[in-house]
Design a protein around this nucleic acid. Structure first.
Lengths: 212, 212
DNA sequence: TAGATTGTTAATCGATTAACAATC
DNA sequence: TAGATTGTTAATCGATTAACAATC
């Protein structure tokens, strides 16, 4: 278990994955040293913001030199909790659930999909890669006998809150929610939303209000 | 074509789909009148913020009464550009592309998927619902002879920038990007990202740094 | 009219940017 | 050492919240 950071603003937290991504690119390009100014040019954040962001977690740079890319990448890796593995289950094995289950990049980052659940009899006992789809009735039993870190909700809107209630009741600490609702959960439960419909509406707004 | 709003901050814009969603719920529940205070209780924004947000676009309420839900919903619908239909194409017909193509909710909101494109010979000429998957080589020809409002990029990371370049060259005004890269496009081109990998890393951060 | 609630201005809070001393 | 660049404090900017006069 690494250090735990508190009171970091969401604005900063949401930039961390982006740093992680760009630093990975730099390593792939065999660039091993970078200043906040150079990173600023690449990423489009100000150099000042970059230094402020990193200094929320301690000083990773060296005056007169800049940052060691691999070291910095390693630190952000740790901060993001990517040194751990996570057991994930997907509830809702429709198109979206299957797409998520098939996205093997997550596994590389330590997010292992252990099981899917669905209410559609046609899907039950099918496999995605080698991951089984169980009847939704087996969800409680499964979570009680297996450690589940992240519940991924890919059900239709109507079912999402019920599923969330079940996951919360069973002690699942985090939910990755793809259903187009804001889930009502106790505050200690972590919810990260992927609201595709909100995203396309934002695009729609920008398109209709653009100058063309 | 409705009014065009400029200089609205992204913070406000990103709340609009959420208002849209909650107002729809209210209509479904046959609630036809609401005050900023009541909406505040439901949505978790402050009443003050709600009034500020709406007043960016004109006064939709009435002192002493509140807001007429249907009217307000209609206004936000217009502001979001949902009175138009949009022709969309998906580039990359793998799991994610297929999941997006199958998500019929988008069609209800006016986003019509007209074609998919992929480089995998196995997929070409298959159909998702009744939408054809074309060879990626046919992309230019297609966009030249059909109006395309939104290009949806569901390719792997490596292909995404090339696809974006092609779309930009052909004059597609907006890109909905699911590939885990920040696309480099001219500033008049609208890009809305769905970075699933960034989202799961954010969740990972919150989970590793939570108090449990 | 009296009560309620908006629209809007002013105050506060938080996040970003600028500046620079510390130091490699 | 001189030059470069960080870490950090101070200044600025923008977004959120509070307050209240306008008015339905």
């Amino acid at each position: 278990m690494g250090k735990r950071y508190k009171n970091i603003s969401m604005a900063v937290i949401r930039r961390l994955p982006r740093y992680h991504r760009y630093l990975k690119d730099l390593i792939d390009k065999e660039i091993y040293r970078i200043s906040s100014k150079e990173l600023s040019n690449i990423m489009g954040f100000t150099a000042s913001q970059i230094r402020q962001d990193f200094n929320n977690f301690g000083g990773f740079g060296q005056q007169g030199y800049g940052y060691n890319v691999e070291e910095l990448y390693g630190e952000i890796q740790k901060i993001l909790g990517l040194n751990n593995d996570y057991n994930c289950i997907i509830i809702g094995a429709g198109n979206l659930g299957q797409a998520v289950a098939n996205y093997t990049d997550f596994e590389k980052a330590g997010f292992y999909i252990r099981a899917l659940f669905d209410s559609n009899p046609k899907l039950i006992d099918m496999k995605i890669r080698d991951i089984n789809i169980y009847d939704i009735d087996k969800l409680e039993e499964y979570v009680e006998s297996n450690k589940v870190d992240i519940g991924i909700i890919c059900t239709p809107r109507e079912a999402a809150q019920d599923v969330a209630n079940t996951l919360v009741k069973l002690g699942v600490p985090a939910i990755w929610n793809f259903a187009p609702v804001d889930l009502d959960v106790p505050e200690e439960v972590i919810v990260e939303n992927v609201h595709l419909s909100d995203s396309i509406l934002t695009l729609s707004y920008l398109l209709s209000n653009s100058q063309l």
